[in-house]
Design a protein around this nucleic acid. Structure first.
Lengths: 195, 195, 195, 195
DNA sequence: AATGAATGAGTCTTCATTCAT
DNA sequence: CATGAATGAAGACTCATTCAT
């Protein structure tokens, strides 16, 4: 009757192991057995809780996206000004990307063609993400804190910049995306680069 | 009349087939035989020109990145003002992304473990890209056409936004990445979203 | 009643199937699937117990050479006179060769070019074989039962003769090496062919 | 019109290259292309002269066995006494083995499934070999130079010993099959190892 | 419920052979 | 005759999945 078990025993254990292994190796190179080992359960046990490797991957993605939702939503609500919200959002992204490396990219960008079902899940997650940010921008626009830009497109710009800058996706060595750069990033996004 | 053959001897034929198939299926789901079929050659022929499936993938990547360089560099040089250059760069990206659709995603997510050599090549390509854009921004700053922002970071923001927006990755259904959005994108990048 | 299973768990089952198939077809023409079938297990099961086809081959060789050791050593110890030991050794060889056909040749002579590791294994087995026989001859010499010949060379002569005569290696049809010939063989070896 | 070509047209060139490559690698690991390279002809040219890889192997075997016949027959006829003939035969074998190193092993172990025809040819060659030696022994017996042993069996013993000892198969490190060992070998064969 | 031994479908890769030049 | 680019049959090996315990 351990609180641990009660919370979600094996299933969560396995999902968490999966986040680690899938993050490190990607979907195809990750072996089910490896995940089972990391979760300290037998290989067969994975199939007690998940229909297939892909199913596990999908469940994991849902799990992660929920964590992401949480992390971002809560923190953004705790500050008021638009620029602070932006800053918090960017920081949350940095941290999240740090933890879930490749998985973050999938949520932000897209997955390679997999099952249609999975595609839907990812699309939905991305859309939510985008819409939340677009709503944030619209709100700022209404409050007079932002220009009347296409909020959806602006949200894309911001998430795109994050996917790249934050996810050490493209610039790995060059620029270890530090806290200082967050300030500059916010500045660029708020004020643009032109006069 | 072998102008056709000359322009596309077997090696190129295969690489082009590879871009199509890898783009659609990702590295792991793409079958060598399928690529061979798409290139209208025998399966064995692929191995006459490429050491392995991975090698083919890598050669293809180099091929694509060269095409990208060309496409962008040339077009950017043909206009003058900073905002025009930005617009052209973004348009070039839209077009390029159109052509090599999922390739960016695959690189991000589904890529095979790359040889250190290829890693270098890709890094270098990205760096060139970044530096070219950063130089463009610096020039604009010096000419008084842009604010004194961190040009390198700004370049990252722009390329990040492009990677995501341009790859119709996020628009898919909602927006068909149209010419109009280019204008808005340039506006957001130049002027930011805040007042 | 699993006495059978206990005596021959999967690993041994597979090795024994391998001795049969490799003996009949040789290393290169033997297919792993064929061995699996002969062992009445799935193809994949072979790879549960052996790293590769070559590994299976090596393990099998070790298995056989151990059986050979046993067969020969024990029987030779049960008789006393030098000529009897010789006779027993020769007979044991006939029987062994009968059972493991081509494999016996490999142990006596050499293997096709394979891994250095395997080469070592075989060399060692051959050396042991040779040394045991040379020791037998030395002992006979010391007891005054044999002339002061180079025992190592003599051992080579004997094993060479066996490899050929016993292994129906070269003369297959002509001379189905029978028990009668053992007596003559021992005579020739002991007394030579000259006066 | 070069004497060179006449003496060694493509066919012989290829066969000689084949002896080298097959000797080193065995039948299955030897690549046709490699043989072609060694013969300094195009891969396709091999197929102008030989129906298949197997055919080439077979033709090569015939070529070698003829060379062996020659080498042994001629030299044995040039000396008189039985023990000298024996010595010469053994020496010829050493030299021959030196040249075609692994060929014997390959024939024994790594040989491809042979056509019935080739099988006959090889059998015949071996039979000739055996019979020539048996005849030699019979002659010696009649002249009172050898004991009344089964000459055919004795011939087998001798050739068996040679196959093994001569092929530096067993000596490798320990003994470098030297001229001295020839003398001892003859002694053992003539006088046996017992008193 | 938990396990891991057993399985075979699925793929990359090799290389003998062909044939257009 | 000579060539080597092109080919595809064949086979080793991986790994998701099953199921008897």
């Amino acid at each position: 009757m351990s609180g641990n078990d009660a919370a979600a025993p094996k299933r969560i254990q396995i999902i968490e192991a999966a986040t680690v292994v899938f993050s490190q190796k990607g979907f195809y190179k990750a072996k089910v057995e490896e995940i089972a080992e990391a979760a300290m359960v037998g290989k067969g046990t994975v199939y007690e809780y998940f229909k297939s490797k892909q199913d596990l991957f999908q469940q994991m993605l849902i799990f992660i996206s929920q964590k992401y939702e949480q992390a971002v939503k809560e923190q953004v609500q705790q500050v008021d000004s638009f620029s602070d919200k932006l800053r918090v959002l960017i920081e949350a992204n940095f941290n999240f990307s740090e933890e879930y490396k490749n998985m973050a990219k999938i949520l932000l960008i897209d997955a390679p063609p997999m099952s249609e079902e999975l595609h839907q899940i990812i699309q939905q997650s991305k859309r939510q993400n985008l819409q939340r940010l677009a709503a944030l921008i619209d709100e700022a626009i209404n409050k007079g804190q932002a220009r009347r830009v296409n909020s959806y497109l602006a949200a894309q710009v911001i998430l795109g910049a994050l996917a790249v800058s934050g996810g050490q996706v493209m610039f790995e060595d060059e620029f270890t995306s530090s806290k200082e750069s967050v300030t500059e990033l916010v500045d660029i996004i708020l004020n643009g680069i032109g006069y």
